[in-house]
Simulated scan of single mutants.
Amino acid sequence: MSAIHKHIEESQVIISELMLPSHSNFSGKIHGGYILSLMDQIAFACASKHSRNYCVTASVDTVNFLNPIEVGELVVMKASVNYVGRTSMVIGIRVEAENIHTGVIKHCNSSYFTMVSKNENGESVPVPGLILDSEIEIRRFVKSAHRLETKAERAKQFKENTFKINEHLDVLKSHNVIVAYKGKP
């Protein structure tokens, strides 16, 4: 772990962009892929600012589009480092859209990008630690740590070579599926 620790606000990034017709999908709402692209950009900026290195996206968790974004709205994205590991960081991103005529602001999305710090040779390198100054920063750090642990446990539980189908067949009874699988020959 790096001997350097930083306050979260030192790496926070805020971007805003007016949504144009060229950003819309077939239903006239802003295309989700465009919003994801902006989110990846702000995650990169925040992680790179924190680590002082080039960063790459390792994973994206929990992308829920809560409210549609309309053409003409001002989108504001706020990014913070919520968690640091040895070479990785979890960047929390909040997306809001403001109707510039009424001033009404709606929460459109919150998401978590795991970014990895790289050196000029493409090797993962340690990142500075965090100084947690508030209850919300502690809550976000612990929540991210828990999410990472749960993700690792889930991956292990459903690994192809250790998955035991008979332990999970009852779960399928409450879902909209027909199990036609007859077992291995």
Score class of each variant (00 low, 15 high):
Asn161Gly: 02
Val177Asp: 08
Lys143Gly: 03
Asp133Trp: 00
Ile15Met: 12
Glu149Arg: 14
Leu74Asp: 02
Ser2Asn: 13
Met19Leu: 11
Lys159Tyr: 11
Pro126Gly: 04
Ile131Ser: 04
Ile8Lys: 02
Ile93Pro: 07
Ala43Asn: 10
Gly32Tyr: 06
Asn67Gly: 00
Arg139Cys: 01
Gly32Lys: 04
Tyr112Ile: 05
Ile138Phe: 05
Ile105Thr: 09
Ile131Pro: 04
Val95Gly: 03
Gly129Pro: 12
His101Lys: 13
Asn99Val: 02
Glu160Arg: 14
Leu148Ala: 10
Glu10Met: 06
Val104Asp: 14
Gly129Ile: 06
Leu20Ser: 06
Ile8Phe: 04
Ser11Ile: 01
Leu38Tyr: 04
Glu135Tyr: 05
Val71Cys: 07
His146Arg: 15
Met89Ser: 12
Ser144His: 08
Thr57Pro: 05
Asn99Glu: 06
Arg139Ile: 11
Gly28Lys: 05
Ile136Cys: 02
Ala145His: 11
Lys118Ile: 15
Arg52Gln: 06
Arg139Thr: 12
Val116Ile: 15
Asn109Asp: 05
Met77His: 00
Arg140Asn: 12
His50Thr: 04
Phe26Lys: 07
Ala152Asn: 13
Thr62Asp: 11
Val116Tyr: 04
Tyr83Ile: 01
Ile93Leu: 10
Thr87Ala: 09
Asn119Cys: 07
Val81Cys: 07
Leu20Phe: 14
Val90Phe: 01
His101Phe: 07
Val104Glu: 15
Ser144Val: 06
Tyr181Val: 07
Ile14His: 06
Thr162Gln: 12
Lys106Pro: 00
Ala47Trp: 02
Ser110Trp: 00
His107Asp: 12
Pro128Ser: 04
Arg139Leu: 09
Ser24Asn: 12
Leu20Arg: 14
Ser88Gly: 12
Val71Ala: 03
Ser124Tyr: 05
Ile15Gly: 01
Ile69Val: 15
Asn109Pro: 01
Gln157Thr: 13
Gly72Ser: 09
Ile100Met: 15
Leu172Val: 12
Asp40Ile: 10
Leu130Asn: 07
Ser27Tyr: 13
Leu169Met: 14
Pro126Ala: 01
Asn166Phe: 11
Asn176His: 07
Glu98Thr: 14
His5Thr: 11
Asp170Glu: 15
Glu10Trp: 01
Leu172Arg: 11
Ile138Asn: 10
Ile4Cys: 03
Asn82Ser: 12
Tyr54Leu: 09
Asn161Ser: 15
Leu36Val: 10
Ile105Pro: 04
Glu167Gln: 14
His50Cys: 04
Gly122Gln: 10
Arg154Lys: 13
Thr87Trp: 02
Ala145Lys: 14
Val142Ile: 14
Met1Thr: 13
Lys49Thr: 03
Ile30Leu: 05
Val95His: 04
Asn121Cys: 05
Glu96Lys: 06
Glu135His: 08
Ile91His: 02
Glu10Asp: 13
Lys184Asp: 15
Lys29Thr: 13
